[in-house]
């Protein structure tokens, strides 16, 4: 195959990744890395470098749209970013001290269960209770554009989700994957935000978390420009389309789609963990 054709196919695959990333708030590395490694015969490290670029591009493309339309909760995002990024840095330091395969299997199992909980959740049935007083003090409550006009929502359990994000940040810093999944699950399951707000806010966060690793990736020569070019452009286009799609679709099918992607991600991690054990 000619180089041009390979790069075009790669851009098409990345476009799909961008759509999925924007719709789920997961960044799309779980699709992109296996695609590059298995279909395009690319070394894992180059794939990881391209995936990092993809996460930043997805986040930027999607967050730009979500911020302008009013889906993102900026305060919740920044607040959780604090432990997410802090945990990530700590995780990178702990890398040599922890049995990664065990951790990966355990994290996969937790994701599996969380994905199931997210699938079952019905929005709006328990939201008569007042918000966490801390959320009120930090003015975290918000509203987002729904079909019938702006819909306000409450925010619960601020401290538990903050601590969860810290623990998850350490784990995803160790494994180099999964930060997006934990973002969405912390906001969806613990803070009980609406699905669209959780995904949009996660999309806002993942680019910042990923950017923190960019220096290390660049320094070690993981980021190849010729490979990153179709990936970046494809993913960015996909993220813009995905963001538009999210605004039109209802929360229920989006939630089912999210659960399916998390399920695949969890199985991938359990498989990887067990085979390296």
């Amino acid at each position: 195959m000619s180089t041009a054709l390979v790069l075009i196919l790669m851009a098409i695959g990345s476009f799909v990744t961008g759509i999925v990333g924007a719709l789920t708030g997961l960044g799309g590395g779980i699709i992109l890395v296996p695609m590059l490694v298995l279909l395009f015969d690319i070394h894992m490290r180059y794939a990881a470098g391209a995936s990092l670029v993809a996460v930043i591009a997805t986040s930027s493309g999607a967050a730009a749209a979500f911020l302008r339309e009013g889906y993102t909760n900026l305060r919740v995002g920044m607040f959780l970013q604090l432990t997410s990024i802090g945990g990530g840095i700590l995780g990178a330091f702990l890398l040599t001290m922890v049995p990664v395969p065990v951790l990966m299997t355990a994290f996969g199992l937790i994701l599996l269960y969380s994905g199931y909980l997210s699938f079952r959740r019905k929005e709006g049935w328990d939201e008569d209770r007042p918000s966490d007083p801390l959320a009120v003090r930090l003015r975290m409550e918000g509203s987002f554009p729904a079909p019938g006009g702006w819909q306000s929502y409450k925010v619960y359990r601020v401290i538990p989700s903050f601590l969860l994000m810290g623990a998850a940040g350490i784990v995803s810093g160790l494994l180099g994957i999964g930060a997006g999944a934990v973002n969405v699950l912390a906001m969806d399951q613990v803070m009980r935000l609406p699905y669209k707000v959780s995904t949009s806010t996660s999309n806002f966060m993942i680019g910042i978390t990923a950017a923190a690793s960019a220096g290390i990736y660049l320094h070690h020569g993981y980021i190849d420009p010729v490979l990153a070019m179709p990936v970046m452009l494809g993913v960015f286009g996909g993220a813009v389309v995905g963001a538009k799609l999210l605004m039109f679709l209802r929360a229920k099918p989006l939630r089912i789609f999210f659960s399916v992607v998390v399920l695949i991600m969890a199985l991938e991690m359990i498989y990887k963990g067990l085979t390296q054990w």
Binding site: D41, Y46, M229
Partner: peptide
């Protein structure tokens, strides 16, 4: 990125690329 990509393809588009083995960037 698009500009750089176009420039690269114009000059080196016929050179095949291989990423099976990790060499690290120059």
């Amino acid at each position: 990125v698009l500009f750089g990509g176009a420039l690269y393809m114009w000059r080196h588009g016929s050179t095949p690329v291989h990423y099976r083995i990790f060499r690290g960037e120059p």
